[in-house]
Design a binder for these strands. Sequence first.
DNA 1: TCAATAATTGACAGAAAGTCAGTAATTCGC
DNA 2: GCGAATTACTGACTTTCTGTCAATTATTGA
Lengths: 248, 248
Amino acid sequence: MDDKLTRKDRERQARSDLFLNIARDVIEKDGYHELSMNRIAEVAEYSKGTIYLHYASREMVLMALCQRGFQAWQDLAKSVLESDLDALDKLFGLSIAHHIYAQLYPVEYDALFLVQASSIREKISDDAHAELTTSIGSLVQAFNDVIKEAIEAGTITLPSDMTAAQLADGLWRLLVRPYAGGQATSVSGAAVQDTGHPGDPALILRTILTGLGGADIAEGAAFAERLTRVRDRLFSDQMAAVRAKSQA
Amino acid sequence: MDDKLTRKDRERQARSDLFLNIARDVIEKDGYHELSMNRIAEVAEYSKGTIYLHYASREMVLMALCQRGFQAWQDLAKSVLESDLDALDKLFGLSIAHHIYAQLYPVEYDALFLVQASSIREKISDDAHAELTTSIGSLVQAFNDVIKEAIEAGTITLPSDMTAAQLADGLWRLLVRPYAGGQATSVSGAAVQDTGHPGDPALILRTILTGLGGADIAEGAAFAERLTRVRDRLFSDQMAAVRAKSQA
DNA sequence: TCAATAATTGACAGAAAGTCAGTAATTCGC
DNA sequence: GCGAATTACTGACTTTCTGTCAATTATTGA
């Protein structure tokens, strides 16, 4: 019964994906304001009505793009969680995973901020919004899990009235930000440069760790060494892809 | 010569302000997607053409709203910087100022995230965007100044390779976030509740301070006491306004 | 082979942005 | 106070998009 929904459904899925790819390409090439249902239809060589059979609105296209991207992000996070690294290494791993995702899927990453902006949020269903919240939540949860693991292992110690969830939320806030894709200006005026490695946010992470885990973890050389080691261990393939991408 | 540009210009300014107020009210009442140039014109009892004489596009209305709001925020920050409090108190003061601004100017605060979303950023001039960046920069700069002051006073100590600007940027990231105006869901899944006082972000601030300033600053009671003291000292009027607003 | 079902189309309605030629009001030199 | 010049205002118009739907074409399975 389950595989009764095969070819037709796979063709349908393939078309959904095609439209989403086109949307992504249009955005990457010409920006969001050039993304229209007409344009997708034109490039896909389908009519507009067909696009609407797959996505109820322009906003839902962005939403779907965002959601599809999350899958890749979650896969990265999963490979961190399922590794045999210790809790602290995993924390670094999640930070690196974020960075890789932002580099490898810039449009999808950017869409995350777009769909959360009020103007778009207002136009999508509560269900769709709830689904997004769930996706975000599952990534914050990954931080949460690793933090708990680190606490249990005694690697870090939280103030008595701070929960793992609160710390996870804080780390999320520090990491996740518009990457100003291709444009120079940082979101804050402090001219934080993206130097091509998990850079400045990691510095703050480090400061938090100074508070929670002691100087021996956060100290310069040890910190950098751990970052490199975890990255090479878990994500050498993806880092190669990042480098390849930045060539082109 | 300077005051030659008086009545006419003030009338013009008054109209610009009127349109902006209407825009804010429309957004507050019916959301962003109900904001149109027609709607502003209608409410203001001017024609659409006149609105366009003041704001070149819908996006520029939002931009202007955002910019006008910054003035109020900067005033709050200024009263912190110019107070005779010590550096650490000022750091708390800036955090409280942010909170008050978000409460008192929810539409303007929200607009900050809206105008930074790619879909809108793409439609405004580079000049307008640069101006916004400058405004944001001046607030981050306030953090920067206070952090430097705190370092000089020996209240906090930074890791050797962390600059004040980096810490300022980090604090900004922790504090400044969509307040999910009126809506329940936090941006992250970690269900951080806004409890009506400078709440959870302060916890992270506290953790950072544990790392940078020692446990005696960040310890529970001392932290809460400082927060209350600074708030009452600098912002008793504004806190009353916040309370009044939450009544209505 | 053909009827039923599914997929696709593109013309259409509606809404909003942004333009601009024309009109009204105001100012200022005299 | 008059008329010319400047400034402010208007709303119909064009364009461009979204989202709909009745009609058309393709596919399937009996």
